[in-house]
Simulated scan of single mutants.
Amino acid sequence: MTGYYAPKGGLPPQTALMTQRAVFTDAYAFIPKGCFSDIVTSNLPGWTNTRLWLIARPMSGFSETFSQYVMEVGPGGGSDTPEPETGAQGVIFMTEGELWLSIDGQEHDLGPGGYAYLPAGCAWRVKNAKTSPARFHWVRKLYETAPGVAAPEAFVTSDRDISPIAMPDTGGRWATTRFVDPGDLRHDMHVNVVTFQPGGVIPFEETHVMEHGLYVLEGKAVYKLNQDWVEVEAGDFMWLRAYCPQACYAAGPGPFRYLLYKDVNRHARLRGVGGFGR
């Protein structure tokens, strides 16, 4: 691991070409790192000295299960009331700087690679007590209960403390850092880090029900999105709806790593939002 890419904002110069790599289709959206400019940041109620890029949100007919923010908390900034949505769970993944985090009174210090799972209903607070910005991803999803299954508990860990698990028959060229056991049915979402060594591939077109958010933390590759091969690099974001075919070839000189969201471990909805019944 050489580091995690974090956007700094700013604007391209007036001499720059307007043509970039951004794409929005019925099957996927691709937001290149050049789109993370100052003019598309937002502020949040209840947060101080903080701005964010909101890169995924539930949209009818597209991806409907999650939202993802790229957060930048300046010195002294943070929130005592960060989550306004009843029933929302969250994951924080640090990319730069340091952040103080309190979960139900338990205090933690997060640095680059730090990971925190925030269960629905917990009381959490964050503050940047340092002199440089803290940058992190915040993934949010409404927790879906299941009969006979207990709700998961909060935990804090780090990408640097967990060994990636190689995919079978890949010689270690494709591996996943799993922060949650895939067999733990308490969790209805996974936020993991996927690593490809140079030359590693997804050797078939994955086509499945899980929605994805993929933020490239390091390296570069070519990624198959539906019918298109797209060059991707650190700082780019890919947003895939359910059943969008995908594949990957890690073509760069070093590791290609991305933060991956997917929804898991629950029945398909047949009624209400996301279903056809009434």
Rank of each mutant, 00 (worst) to 15 (best):
G3R: 14
A6C: 10
P7C: 03
M18R: 13
T19F: 13
T19S: 07
A22I: 13
T25M: 11
A27H: 13
C35K: 11
F36H: 09
S37F: 03
S37Q: 14
I39P: 01
I39Q: 11
V40Q: 03
L44T: 03
L44W: 03
G46W: 01
W47S: 00
P58I: 04
F62D: 04
S63A: 15
T65S: 06
S67W: 00
Y69K: 01
E72H: 07
V73W: 00
V73Q: 00
G78L: 02
P84I: 02
G87V: 15
A88G: 02
G90H: 02
M94W: 04
M94I: 06
E96D: 14
W100K: 08
I103A: 12
I103T: 05
I103M: 12
G105L: 06
G111V: 09
P112W: 10
L118E: 08
A120T: 06
R125Y: 00
K127H: 11
F136Y: 15
R140D: 01
K141P: 01
E144C: 08
V149T: 14
F155S: 13
V156K: 07
R160P: 00
A166L: 11
M167H: 14
D169V: 04
T177M: 03
T177N: 08
F179W: 09
F179P: 07
D181L: 10
G183P: 07
R186V: 09
H187E: 06
D188Q: 15
H190R: 11
G199M: 10
G199H: 02
P203I: 12
T207K: 07
E211D: 03
H212C: 01
V216Q: 03
E218N: 15
G219I: 02
V230Q: 15
E231Y: 10
A234F: 01
G235F: 01
M238Y: 01
C244G: 05
P255A: 13
R257E: 15
R257A: 02
L259M: 10
Y261P: 06
K262G: 09
K262T: 08
D263G: 03
N265L: 04
R266S: 04
R269W: 13
R278P: 00
